[in-house]
Design a protein around this nucleic acid. Structure first.
Lengths: 249, 249
DNA sequence: CGACAAGTTGAAAAGCATCAAAGTAGGTGG
DNA sequence: CCACCTACTTTGATGCTTTTCAACTTGTCG
């Protein structure tokens, strides 16, 4: 039986059973983190990365003057803390927005994947590149767009990621983010996020419910955001075929 | 003789001679690009990444309304275009700011590195994580800091990267960037960049020369930027030792 | 020398931040 | 079950940073 991998890595390429085995053996015991708990703080030594198996987590960069920017919002299946692998001290604070569960991976085990499970290594590499695209798109919206457009871009982005993770149907998004979180994600103040959400709602593009948002007009939101739609690769032909595929052929 | 690798990959770990050989064989023939030439455009098919061996290149994301954000400034030794490996269409336009030389790597050859040269693969992975940290820091400054602080952060960043590439002595930076480039990098207008540079100069933090900038007070600029100094790893102990090291021991 | 790109400066307007206060919901203990 | 507390949302008034528009200056290269 193929073990279930909590990492959303088969998004790009299918992994041979052997790689899945190796990958699942690198996973440490699950660690539960309460709401608002810190998984790791900026400046901490880096000896693990984490797989998020449950809950929502924010990667934050804190400035010396006390301001905070959320650089990435993580959901189920994401790899947490990888950027800091290149550093001696963690670059980001991993803050649990909801109660969450993570499975640590010791860096020593992580590194071994590159020697023992090259296909998994490719998948991890591609996942890192995908994260770079997310960051690039975020820089673009924060640097060059109005609050209204930033919010539209972000809502579209979250909706698409939740869809991939199997956590969203149609345009309905259930989420735990406060308007302060949105502000920290988009480089705004919570007051202005509030006014901007109201504006989007008055224009009929979204509808706010108790703890969620319904995207009433996804196309209009996408146009407002102005970013090109990103189409991710799947089993690219530049990758040598998986052993599994060879058997079938 | 160890072939010279134009990739700045030994920044984190030393590569065995075998990996260097394999790596250098993946490099295609150098391609010269004139100033303002496009190496690859947003939306193009993705079948290569590039190593920048000479000149300065900007990775740009273009919005539907014609606005442009430069998400990364590349110098000698950088890998260009890797984020788009996860996409069917390139996410970024690679724009030569100066005349430049790149060496293409076919994705098929690039992928083989993960099977034939795992240590090189680790180095590439770490380089991608470093790029993520750069992007995260940029998001933070654009999202949460004034024009003055953004500029300070960026000057510090460029100076440090040039130092690693062996292209800067003391605080003197020779660069080809126009104020419009700076504006597109920092999410500002060229007019405001101009005023902000003047302000930095009046405060004695920088001095503008013909085609360069002298950082008169690096510490003050760093404090103004407010980002923690990033210390990159070197031969991390979580990585199995290189064959070369084993021989010495 | 002339043309075109880049840098500089001023004035006015826009967008967002800031400050302050009131309203709402969810959770806890008595 | 209610009262209270706390955290979050909402709204208004004001001010500041940055943009926008426009003109002018400087520098560069044929």
């Amino acid at each position: 039986m193929t073990p279930t991998i909590p990492v959303r890595l088969s998004e790009f390429i299918d992994l041979p059973e052997e790689d899945r085995d190796i990958l699942s053996r690198t996973l440490g015991t699950p660690r539960r983190v309460p709401k608002l708990g810190l998984i790791r703080q900026q400046g901490d030594p880096v000896d693990h990365v984490f797989i998020l198996t449950e809950g929502w987590v924010a990667s934050c960069v804190d400035l010396r003057d006390g301001q905070r920017q959320i650089v990435k919002l993580h959901i189920q299946g994401d790899v947490l803390g990888a950027p800091s692998m290149a550093l001696t001290q963690a670059a980001e604070t991993l803050l649990a927005i909801t109660a969450a569960t993570v499975r640590p991976i010791a860096l020593r085990d992580f590194a071994r994947l590159f020697f023992d499970a090259p296909r998994a290594a490719v998948a991890l590499f591609l996942s890192a590149q995908q994260e770079r695209v997310f960051l690039m798109d975020r820089i673009t919206t924060i640097g060059r767009q109005s609050a209204l457009r930033r919010l539209a871009s972000f809502l579209i982005h979250v909706q698409e990621r939740l869809k991939v993770a199997g956590m969203a149907r149609d345009g309905r998004i259930e989420w735990p983010l406060t308007q302060q979180h949105l502000a920290d994600l988009l480089g705004l103040t919570s007051v202005h996020v509030n006014r901007t959400l109201s504006a989007l709602e008055k224009q009929g593009l979204i509808q706010r419910t108790g703890h969620g948002i319904i995207l009433k007009d996804v196309e209009a939101l996408r146009n407002l955001g102005g970013l090109p739609a990103r189409q991710w690769i799947c089993e690219p032909e530049w990758l040598p075929p998986s052993p599994r595929d060879l058997k079938q052929a």
